[in-house]
Design a protein around this nucleic acid. Sequence first.
DNA 1: TCAATAGTGTCTGTTAGACATTATGGA
DNA 2: TCCATAATGTCTAACAGACACTATTGA
Lengths: 223, 223
Amino acid sequence: MPERRTRKPPYTIDVVLLTPVRGQLAVLLCRVPEGRDKWTLPWEGPRTGEALDAAAGRITKSVLGEDAVWREQIGAFGDGKRHPSDTEISVGFVGLVPMGTPSPVGGVYAWFPIADIPQLAPRQRQLLDSAISMVRTRMDQSPVAFRLLPQMFTLTELQQMYEFLLARRLHKASFRRALHGAWLVEPTDEWRSEGRGRPAQLYRYAPRKRRPAQRGIRLDFMS
Amino acid sequence: MPERRTRKPPYTIDVVLLTPVRGQLAVLLCRVPEGRDKWTLPWEGPRTGEALDAAAGRITKSVLGEDAVWREQIGAFGDGKRHPSDTEISVGFVGLVPMGTPSPVGGVYAWFPIADIPQLAPRQRQLLDSAISMVRTRMDQSPVAFRLLPQMFTLTELQQMYEFLLARRLHKASFRRALHGAWLVEPTDEWRSEGRGRPAQLYRYAPRKRRPAQRGIRLDFMS
DNA sequence: TCAATAGTGTCTGTTAGACATTATGGA
DNA sequence: TCCATAATGTCTAACAGACACTATTGA
């Protein structure tokens, strides 16, 4: 996928694909053909007339076989940092892939848990950090946690995803109360038994229209 | 500022400078030399080795004489939309300028209220819309409203700025309670009398360290 | 004096978190 | 039976919004 073209593109589109793997966020990296154990984010140059977002979708399809279920632009990165393309800037996108999506075979691609990322070009490292930070901060404006789960999930799984992304424990009753009030999920008539306790009902993401919440102002900054 | 270079740059840096003018947000536009009544956002090509953010600061200084008090990257824009530079993409920045900053003289630059923007290149129009949207959504993570006010301001002015940016009325006592709890301002010993009523005390932005608020999760999305 | 604005105290309904309890399966 | 997990009801402290009140100036 980082197919080298003969001419250097004016910029690149780099895609950070994230999925949960064993209770951790993982990012899809691609083995650099020349390097022995060097890895890179999926990236390509633009095609003429193609929108940036469409290019990110195309790159995702070319590495995963299907598009991400959620995608957002992170921004432009450059600042003199190195990048495999040798371009001055790269436009970063973050895409979410549901848990359980099979890895592409062949050994060229692999999911790396974000706690254990191999060395990357500095610009891609910065891009990856921004992607993870964006996913964390967009959680309350976008259905990020839902998009990382399969179509049907238990409320405990959803809460664990929130707890993992927010890196803090949540209160079960409060979480479910908020979820109920937000009209974001609907129960299915399936249940899943996992080990000992009572089976959990499976839910699906099904947001319903509601008037935007009139909350008080938030002053959550320190500088 | 849009000084035409002989060679087309690989991309441009476009800056959306915003300031309040008569209770409205206004954006700084630059008259296009050739066109009779055509306007453009300040933009330039990159210089080698210069960080993107630094370039935005340089452009701001070159048009205003001083840098913005707050700046953030909006992202990369292209998608086949027209731009005066004829480049494929532009990296947008939004910068805030305190109320009362004098306009640059000469008639080349002018502040336009956002409700009354002249025709712009489509890419710049999209960039401007994103900038305004970003300022509105970043209000509770960044001291946006404070940066649009002069160094010293009354609490009523601050509340009016919030009300204007959020486009809704706020409760005076609640607003001040939240402000007090956030340790973001400190009173000065100056007062300002404005017309009839009791004079208002002037405050300055002086954020103090505090433990990050442990709020409940927010599910403020509908899709 | 009145009018207008600044600033604050109190009350109340809402909500997040703590805690307890019931429900329902497997071992 | 006991144990583990799901799911939910109740209590309480914190908080946002409503309202009223005092304070201080100009007209």
